[in-house]
């Protein structure tokens, strides 16, 4: 955590932007808020599905679940590798941190690749009724978050090579890691809703 609790502006000369370190607090509040948008999409999905007369468009049998399951395993394990990365950072083994951080990024990228692969093989588009619309909305919006997570990790990785890199900025790594767990949890719910609940 932060080393100094923000005594009312210890270093006045730095002016704005130096008012203590509340980034993590702010980020957690943001994540709570962001989860509501997924909650809205999930409940919309459930409502539309429950009230639908013909949920699947003509000619669509259902969703194949093998690729998504592999994707799920990869994404869930990447939550483990990011924890390991953080662990090594706390032990000041910076190279191991970087290795596991990069591994997490690679697993995230693999997830996106798998998602793209799945999309390209589907016979329905986003205008194929509410089924197609909600499917692409949910997976697309989640994929956007995965991409954002990878981008954040990339920034943090570059920062680790800068001199004096994380001085006062450790919260960036923590926040990215939190975001990654968030993306992971959302995916598990999404997987259950879309792929498991097909009946």
């Amino acid at each position: 955590m932060t080393t100094t609790t923000p005594q009312p502006l210890a270093d006045h000369g730095a002016g704005h932007g130096a008012h203590g370190n509340h980034n993590l607090t702010g980020f957690i509040i943001f994540l709570c808020s962001e989860s509501v948008i997924f909650l809205a999409f999930f409940s919309g999905y459930a409502l539309l599905k429950l009230s639908a007369l013909n949920w699947l468009p003509d000619g669509v049998e259902g969703l194949e679940w093998r690729t998504p399951l592999i994707n799920t395993v990869v994404l869930v394990s990447s939550s483990g590798t990011i924890v390991l990365a953080e662990h090594f950072k706390a032990k000041e083994k910076i190279w191991l941190f970087r290795a596991f951080w990069l591994l997490t990024m690679a697993m995230g990228s693999y997830f996106l690749y798998g998602q793209a692969l799945e999309w390209s093989g589907l016979q329905f588009g986003f205008t194929s009724g509410t089924f197609g619309g909600t499917f692409y909305l949910l997976t697309g919006f989640h994929g956007l978050h995965v991409a954002t997570g990878i981008l954040l990790m990339g920034i943090m990785l570059i920062k680790s090579f800068l001199p004096g890199n994380y001085v006062g900025g450790e919260q960036g790594v923590q926040a990215t890691s939190l975001f990654w767990h968030f993306v992971d949890v959302i995916w598990i719910v999404l997987f259950l809703l879309i792929y498991v609940w097909q009946g």
């Binding site: 539309l48 639908a52 013909n54 205008t127 009724g129 619309g133 909600t134 909305l137």
Partner: peptide, 16 residues
């Protein structure tokens, strides 16, 4: 873009 989340003719629900 022509999705039908709220379009009844495409299975959507305006009350949602």
């Amino acid at each position: 873009v022509g999705t039908s989340f709220y379009r009844p003719e495409g299975g959507g629900d305006p009350v949602l």
